[in-house]
Design a binder for these strands. Structure first.
Length: 924
RNA sequence: GCGGCUGUGGCGAAAUUGGCAUACGCGGCGGGCUUAAAAUCCGCUGGGGAUUUCCCCGUUGUCGGUUCGACUCCGACCAGCCGCACCA
C-alpha cells in the first residue's frame, strides 16, 4: 500500500488555493470527533418499544421545500406515527480479527439503518456476540487460559473495531451469549420443549468429528461427510445417547411457510431449505416374509423357518410400479438384515445362489463398515447379496427375493425398498449387476417415446399391472395407495429428509443442558427456579475424552430435585446454534430477568424487517431460528410465524481469488484499513466496488479511487464554504452572522440559510436538474434495489458536474447542491457527511436532518435528445422540447440530412416512436 | 446426475419496463501547475481513418429464434462458480 501520506500524521492542513484557504481531509480526526458526538447525543438509540403512540416525524425540510413552501405537502408523505424498522446483521463469533469481509456486511446494514433513520423510522439496529463455541475452548487450552478470558478479550477488540467504523448500533442492547443471564433462557426454552415432547433423548447413530471431539448435527456435516469446521476431516459414525430437538415436528410448517418468504428471501436460500427438508409424498407397503422357498405353496406360511419377523415395510413414491418389483432390498443397517441371513444354507431349487451363512455374515459386516464412511457413498459401486429369503408382493402375490444392498439408506424412509429395475436408475444398475429380472410396468404416454432407454423413470401409463393396467401413473399411484390402505397392507405416507436436531456436545464452552439423572426417579428436569445451571468456573480442559463437565465432581454430583437422593447432572452442553436461534429476540428486551423477553416488546419490533448475513447460514442458523420462532409462537410468546421478513445474503470479500480468512492468510484488517484511509473510505469502497450480493475482489489500487473521491468532495465543500465566508465577511453583502465567527468553528450563516433565488441561468438550471435526477436515482437505489455501487457512481457524476460548473453558478445554488450531495453520502460515509454538514454551516448535527426530498419539477428535462434510427441503426440525433408531438419529431427527422440520406428512394413502411427518447423509421 | 447462479473493454463494473452498449471508478496515455517530484485540475482511452467539425467497421460466452429494435425475452449449447447428491 506504499506511502504513508494517507496516515494520520501528515503535515497540517491549510493550503492556499485560488485565493481561498482549503483544509485537508483528515479522516482520523473527523471520525473520532463525530463518533464521540454521536455517543454523547445518543443518536442511535431506538425509541422505547412502548411508543406505539404517535410521534411527530423528525423535522426535516429540504432547502428546496423551504424555498418553495412545500414543507406541508412533503410531510404528508411521512407517516405521522413513526414506523418501526428492525435491521440486523448476523451476530459475529468473536474470534480472530475483523477484516474487510466482516466490514462489508456491517456497512450494508449500517447504510440501511441510517437511511431509515433519516426517513423518520424508529430504527432498531443492535449488535451482540455469539460467544460460546469450540474455538474459544481450543484456543484456551492452547494458551492455558480460560475460554471466557479469551472470548472477552476478543469481544473487547471487536467492539473497538466496530466503533472505529462508526456503525450506528444501539449499544445499550448488546448481548453476549456466554453470560448466564443469556444462556439461562436457552435452558428455560429447553425445559419448555421437554415438557412438550419437543426435546428427547435417544441413542442413535450420530456424526462425530474426531478433531472437534464432539458430535455434530446433520446440518454441520458438509461436502458429503466432512466437518463444517474442519473441511478436511471426515466425520465418523458413532452410536451415542444424546439430546434431540424435534425440528421434524415442524417440517411441514417450515416447508409451507417458505412460500411467505418468496420474493423476500433469496431464491437460493429458499431452494436450499426446501431441498434440505426434502418432502416426499408416497406410500408405505408391507411385504410378508415367506421363507427360503420361492415356490412355497401354502399361503398361510408367513413366518420363515428361522423365525424372522413376518413383514418388511418399504417406502415408495412410485407405488404404481409395484408390479415391476423384482426384489426387496434392505439397508445393511436394517435390523432385519441380520436376522434374515441366519439359518440353514439354501436348499435346492433356488433361482439365485445364496452364499453360505458364514459368508453372508462376513459380507454384511463388511458393508456395514463401508457405509460408516460417508465419503464416496454416492459414487461407490452397487454392492449386495441375496439373503436367501423371499417376500410376497401384496398386490401380485408374487414371491420376490430379499437382498441387502449398500445403496439403501437406513436413515431415510424405512431402510428398505422395493427394487423396480425397469423404472429406477439405481435399481436398474443393481439388477443388471446381479441378474435380477427387469419387468416393464410403465410405458411412455406417447408412442413416439416408445423404445425409450431403460430405465424409464418418468410417469406414463401402467401395463402388466393387473387391474391397474392402462391407468396413468398419477391415477395408479392414487388408486393403489388407497387400495393398499383399504386392504391393510399399506398406507399413504409423507416423509421428510429433515432429521431431528442433535444438540448434545461433549465440550465445556456451551450452555449446560438442564437435566439431572437420578437412580430412583430417572431423568429429572432442573426446576425453573434453579436456573441458570451455571458452568463451573475452573474446568479441566484437555480437548480429549469425555465432556469436561463430567470430570468435575462438584458440577456433576447433585441431589435429585425430586427425592433428594444422590444424582448426576447431564454433563453435555448445547450446540451453539441454540444460542443464535433466538438471540434477536433478546435485543428487544436484553435485561429482562423474569423471561427471555417481554411479548409486547417482541411483537412491536418483530418480524425483523431486514436481516443481513452470509449464505453459509442458508440452512444452519436460518433453519434453526425459523424452527425456534414457531416453537415460541406455540408457547404463546410471540404472534408471528417467521422471524425475518426479508433476508439479504451479501457476497464474500475475496483477495487473491479466495475468501478473506485468517486461515487463508489473505485478510485486510479492518483497523489497519481505518488507520490508513479512514473508516469512511473503507465503507465507501466496499459499497462501490461491486453490488452487495456479488463477491468482491479486493484491490488496493481501487481503494485509492474511493479515497480520492472523498478528498475531492471535501475540497469542493470546503472551498465553497471558504468562499462564502469571505464574501459574507469581506464584501459587504448584508447577511447576518450566526454564532461567533471567532470561535474557531465555522458557524457563520451558510448560503443555505440565506434567502435563495430561483435558478436564473441555463447552467444553474442544468446543475439543479442533475442534482435532483441524481437524488431520484440514489433514493431508488437505496430503497429498492440496493445498488449502492451505481448510487455512488451517480454522486460522483454530480460531484464532477459541480466542479465543471465552477463559478458559472451562484454560490447559493451551489450550496443547495452540496447540501443534497452531503445528505446522499450520509448513510455511506457518515463521518465525512457530518463534517461537511457542519462546514456548510449547520449546527444541529446531520443526524437531525432527514433524507432530502426529490423535486420532480426541478428534475424535469426541458429539452431532450431523440435518437433517430433507420431500420434500427442510429442515423441522427435531434434536440427537441420535451414532450414534442410525434408529427413534429418526424418532420425534423426527415429534414435531418444524415437521416434523409437513408430515406432517399426508400418507402417508409413503419414508424416506431418512443416518446422523448427514440424514433425508428423502417424503410424498404 | 439433479438444482441454482454467473458470463459485457486491460481490470472492478453500469445500462430501472425490450429503446443511443460500455456510465462511474481503477489502470494507461497526454496536457496545465511545479526548478522538480508528489498531490491536484483538465483531456483522451473498442478498432481503423481524417490535423478540427467528422467518416467507416466491430461488439455484451457460442449458435439459433421472437421483435421495427435484444446485454435484457425464448430455445439449444459451451465455460466457470455454488448447493445437494444412491432420498426410493
Amino acid at each position: 500500500m506504499g506511502s504513508d501520506r494517507k496516515s494520520g500524521g501528515r503535515a497540517p492542513a491549510l493550503r492556499k488555493r485560488d485565493g481561498d484557504y482549503v483544509g485537508e481531509y483528515r479522516p482520523q480526526e473527523i471520525e473520532a470527533k463525530w463518533q464521540k458526538k454521536w455517543e454523547e447525543e445518543r443518536v442511535f438509540e431506538s425509541e422505547a418499544e412502548a411508543s406505539e403512540e404517535s410521534f411527530p416525524p423528525r423535522a426535516h425540510r429540504s432547502p428546496l421545500e423551504k424555498r418553495e413552501g412545500r414543507a406541508a405537502q412533503a410531510s404528508a408523505l411521512v407517516p405521522q406515527k413513526k414506523a418501526k424498522y428492525y435491521v440486523l446483521e448476523m451476530l459475529p463469533y468473536p474470534s480472530g480479527t475483523l477484516h474487510m469481509g466482516h466490514m462489508r456486511n456491517y456497512t450494508i446494514g449500517d447504510v440501511v439503518a441510517r437511511t431509515k433513520r433519516m426517513k423518520g423510522f424508529n430504527v432498531l439496529h443492535p449488535m451482540g456476540w455469539d460467544a460460546f463455541g469450540l474455538p474459544a475452548e481450543n484456543a484456551a487450552i492452547k494458551a492455558n487460559t480460560h475460554p471466557r478470558t479469551w472470548t472477552n478479550n476478543n469481544i473487547a477488540e471487536f467492539q473497538r473495531v466496530l466503533r472505529r467504523f462508526g456503525f450506528s448500533y444501539d449499544w445499550r442492547r448488546e448481548i453476549s451469549t456466554c453470560e448466564p443471564e443469556y444462556y439461562r433462557w436457552n435452558q428455560w426454552f429447553f425445559l419448555r420443549m421437554l415438557e412438550r415432547g419437543l426435546a428427547y433423548r435417544k441413542k442413535s447413530r450420530v456424526n462425530w468429528c474426531p478433531k472437534c471431539c464432539t458430535v455434530l448435527a446433520n446440518e454441520q456435516v458438509v461436502n458429503g461427510g466432512y466437518c463444517w469446521r474442519h473441511e478436511d476431516t471426515l466425520v465418523e459414525a458413532r452410536d451415542i445417547e444424546q439430546w434431540f430437538l424435534k425440528i421434524t415436528a415442524y417440517a411441514e410448517q417450515l416447508l409451507e411457510d417458505l412460500k411467505q418468504l418468496e420474493g423476500e428471501w433469496p431464491e437460493r436460500v429458499i431452494t436450499m431449505q426446501r431441498n434440505w427438508i426434502g418432502k416426499s409424498i408416497g406410500a408405505k407397503v408391507y411385504f410378508e416374509v415367506a421363507g427360503t422357498d420361492e415356490r412355497a405353496a401354502s399361503s398361510d406360511q408367513n413366518t420363515s423357518q428361522c423365525g424372522a419377523p413376518a413383514r418388511i415395510e418399504i417406502f415408495t413414491t412410485r407405488i404404481d410400479t409395484i408390479y415391476g418389483a423384482s426384489a426387496l432390498i434392505l439397508s445393511p443397517h436394517h435390523p432385519l438384515s441380520e436376522k434374515l441371513i441366519e439359518g440353514a444354507d439354501a436348499g435346492a431349487g433356488l433361482r439365485t445362489a445364496r452364499p453360505a451363512e458364514e459368508n453372508r455374515r462376513k459380507k454384511l459386516a463388511q458393508m456395514r463398515q463401508a457405509s460408516l464412511k460417508m465419503e464416496d457413498i454416492a459414487t461407490a459401486e452397487k454392492d449386495g447379496f441375496f439373503t436367501g429369503q423371499y417376500a410376497v408382493n401384496p398386490f401380485s402375490g408374487e414371491r420376490i427375493p430379499i437382498w441387502v444392498g449398500n445403496f439403501v439408506l437406513m436413515e431415510y424412509g424405512t431402510g428398505a425398498i422395493m427394487a423396480v429395475p425397469a423404472h429406477d436408475e439405481r435399481d436398474f444398475e443393481f439388477a443388471t449387476k446381479f441378474g435380477l429380472a427387469i419387468p416393464v410396468v410403465v410405458r411412455p404416454r406417447l408412442e413416439a417415446q416408445d423404445g425409450a432407454p431403460a430405465p424409464f423413470t418418468e410417469y406414463g401409463v401402467s401395463v402388466n399391472s393387473g387391474p391397474y393396467s392402462r391407468l396413468t401413473s398419477e391415477e395408479a399411484i392414487e388408486r393403489m395407495a388407497a387400495d393398499a390402505e383399504a386392504r391393510g397392507f399399506g398406507k399413504k405416507e409423507t416423509i421428510y429428509r429433515l432429521r431431528d436436531w442433535g444438540i448434545s456436545r461433549q465440550r465445556y464452552w456451551g450452555t449446560p443442558i438442564p437435566v439431572i439423572y437420578c437412580a430412583r426417579d430417572g431423568m429429572v428436569p432442573v426446576p425453573d427456579q434453579d436456573l441458570p445451571v451455571v458452568l463451573p468456573a475452573n474446568p479441566k480442559l484437555t480437548g480429549e475424552g469425555e465432556s469436561p463437565l463430567a470430570t468435575d465432581p462438584e458440577f456433576a454430583n447433585v441431589k435429585c430435585p425430586k427425592c433428594g437422593g444422590p444424582a448426576r447432572r447431564e454433563t453435555d452442553t448445547m450446540d451453539t446454534f441454540v444460542d443464535s436461534s433466538w438471540y434477536f429476540y433478546r435485543y428487544c428486551d436484553p435485561k429482562n430477568d423474569k423471561a427471555p423477553f417481554e411479548a409486547a416488546k417482541a411483537n412491536y419490533w418483530f418480524p425483523i424487517d431486514q436481516y443481513i448475513g452470509g449464505i453459509e447460514h442458508a440452512i444452519l442458523h436460518l433453519m434453526y431460528s425459523r424452527f425456534w420462532c414457531k416453537v415460541m409462537r406455540d408457547l404463546g410468546l410471540i404472534s408471528h410465524n417467521e422471524p425475518a421478513a426479508r433476508l439479504f445474503t451479501q457476497g464474500m470479500v475475496l483477495k487473491d481469488g479466495a475468501a478473506m480468512s485468517k486461515s487463508a492468510g489473505n485478510v485486510v484488517g479492518a483497523l489497519e484499513m481505518a488507520e490508513r484511509y479512514g473508516a469512511d473510505t473503507g465503507r465507501l469502497y466496499t459499497l462501490f466496488a461491486a453490488p452487495p450480493e456479488k463477491d468482491l475482489e479486493w484491490s488496493e489500487e481501487s481503494i485509492e479511487g474511493s479515497w480520492r473521491f472523498l478528498n475531492r468532495v471535501y475540497r469542493l465543500v470546503d472551498k465553497h464554504a471558504a468562499g462564502a465566508n469571505r464574501r459574507l465577511s469581506g464584501e459587504g453583502e448584508q447577511r447576518s452572522l450566526v454564532g461567533d465567527p471567532d470561535g474557531g468553528k465555522k458557524t457563520e450563516a451558510p448560503p443555505s440559510k440565506a434567502a435563495r433565488g430561483a435558478p436564473a441561468t441555463e447552467k444553474e438550471k442544468a446543475l439543479l436538474r442533475k442534482t435532483h435526477q441524481t437524488l431520484r436515482r440514489v433514493t431508488q437505489d437505496f430503497e429498492t434495489r440496493w445498488h449502492f455501487n451505481s448510487a455512488i457512481a451517480q454522486v460522483m457524476e454530480l460531484t464532477n458536474a459541480v466542479y465543471a460548473a465552477e463559478d458559472s453558478v451562484r454560490p447559493e445554488i451551489r450550496g443547495e447542491v452540496l447540501e443534497i450531495l452531503t445528505l446522499m453520502l450520509a448513510p455511506m460515509t457518515p463521518h465525512l457527511a457530518e463534517e461537511l454538514w457542519e462546514i456548510l454551516g449547520h449546527t444541529g448535527g446531520l443526524w437531525t436532518a432527514g433524507w432530502p426530498t426529490y423535486n420532480a419539477e426541478l428534475a424535469k428535462e426541458e429539452e431532450v435528445e431523440i435518437v433517430v434510427q433507420v431500420n434500427g441503426k442510429v442515423r441522427g440525433r435531434l434536440r427537441v422540447a420535451a414532450g414534442a408531438a410525434q408529427g413534429e419529431v418526424m418532420k425534423l427527422a426527415e429534414a435531418d440530412p444524415g437521416v434523409a440520406a437513408y430515406l432517399k428512394g426508400k418507402k417508409i413502411v413503419k414508424v416506431v416512436p418512443v416518446p422523448d427518447k427514440l424514433l425508428n423509421i423502417v424503410v424498404v
